[in-house]
Design a protein around this nucleic acid. Structure first.
Lengths: 238, 238
DNA sequence: GAGAAACGCGAGCGATGTCTCGTGTTTGTC
DNA sequence: GACAAACACGAGACATCGCTCGCGTTTCTC
């Protein structure tokens, strides 16, 4: 850790003003050496940000409010994040990381013998569970007011998800034109989002009922396409 | 606490077809007597607001930008609307009014012999057409950042729509528990919104294809519930 | 224990946005 | 034509928000 006298601008772009801590290692000269206390503050701030984003949305959320929610001063917040956007980015990154594990386990294994109902049911259950555990995710991914960089991440996740869904679908629909397959995948994701909104808007028994309805909608939408591979014939529910 | 005139609600006579866009009365007494010029300015400002809301969303839209888009000064804008929210409210009102005619014609007539496919197809076509003609509607109704009063209007429309859908559904599903019927209606509206987003995101042929997919999703979701009344059997497409 | 760096604070700067005010112009009515 | 009310303007008052600065405190390291 080279300390070049007391002038902090020595190793940094002058325009940058303050060091602007990076949580993870990026290129950019020397990242800041965080202490345990700092790491704790970061997750604390991230949790506060999640809470505020959830209730007010991204644009309406003020950094002062986030700092207050976290019980620190505005200045402290900016020791760990260069700007407001970076907070959302970092939050999105961590969420995305956790998400990858979730949907990796949810969509990846395409056992060629699993019936459609089970595959859809399992995937939906996992995604719903994740979104219920992390309501911020929905808030961040649904806001039409999100600035540039976050949208990129959103698009990246979106694309990854769609690719996975297409993969999964293609195992059920071997001979469908790519364009149709892509459209079907988009529809599935859209239907899921619609169902998710309803699920998040209710609780307990109603929530469970909506989860079931969402599965029904997806299965019935896909059933006519798959032909066989239905597990059991998609008879109308009793 | 600026602005004393933002108060609960200024007595709004709601005359017949009059959209009622009166601005501030000096003291909550009687509305202002508008001239033809003023009425013209109002629709001009509303159109400008629609355009700005569409491209930037509600919160990010500045009143100055709306005034500039309309080619008038900020002061002029405030001659006709007490505040920014009122612009969105009035815009929502007029949209809603037009919407009522559209979906009144789209959902009201429940000919007991129409097959499910046709009923859904017709309703979807009308709604999609309306939303394509008025993209603001989607923007205003979907923003997570919309302040209080607008949400009320949104909820009102939502409730009205749901009631209509339930009506329509109940003619197809005579003996279903009310709770289940309501849930099904919510799902239908949710599925429609999801499809709408995809439809608005594409053009021409792709857009038409998504419209068809939306109809498919709705019909297939509902088909197992109706039993007969299918018009033609919902055979899977090849 | 001493020095450096990370951490923490909170007043406040600059930019931006909503809305007002004083004034001048147009329109409707007599 | 005269008068009032509606219309129009645009500078700026007032608030808010993102973010910074200077300085004090805690923690790490030797």
């Amino acid at each position: 850790m080279p300390d070049k006298s007391d002038t902090p601008e020595q190793g940094r772009p002058v325009e940058q003003g303050r060091p602007a801590a990076q949580a993870q290692a990026t290129e950019q000269g020397q990242p800041r050496r965080r202490q345990a206390r700092g790491e704790r503050r970061i997750v604390q701030l991230l949790e506060a940000a999640a809470s505020v984003f959830c209730t007010t949305g991204y644009t309406a959320a003020s950094t002062n409010a986030i700092a207050r929610e976290a019980g620190v001063s505005p200045g402290t917040l900016y020791q760990f994040f260069p700007n407001k956007e970076a907070i959302a980015i970092e939050l999105g990154d961590r969420l995305m990381h956790e998400m990858r594990e979730t949907y990796g386990a949810a969509l990846a294994p395409v056992d060629p013998t699993t019936p459609l109902e089970d595959a859809v049911g399992a995937a939906v259950d996992r995604f719903i569970a994740f979104n219920c555990d992390h309501p911020v995710f929905f808030a961040l991914m649904h806001g039409p007011d999100i600035p540039g960089r976050i949208t990129e991440e959103h698009d990246a996740l979106h694309a990854t998800l769609l690719a996975r869904i297409e993969d999964l679908l293609s195992s059920f629909l071997p001979d469908v034109a790519p364009a149709d397959l892509s459209r079907t995948a988009h529809m599935c994701l859209g239907l899921y989002k619609a169902g998710l909104e309803l699920v998040l808007g209710h609780e307990d028994a109603e929530r469970a009922a909506y989860v079931q309805e969402l599965k029904n909608a997806l299965i019935r939408y896909l059933a006519p396409l798959v032909g066989d591979r239905l597990g059991r014939p998609a008879t109308p529910a009793p």
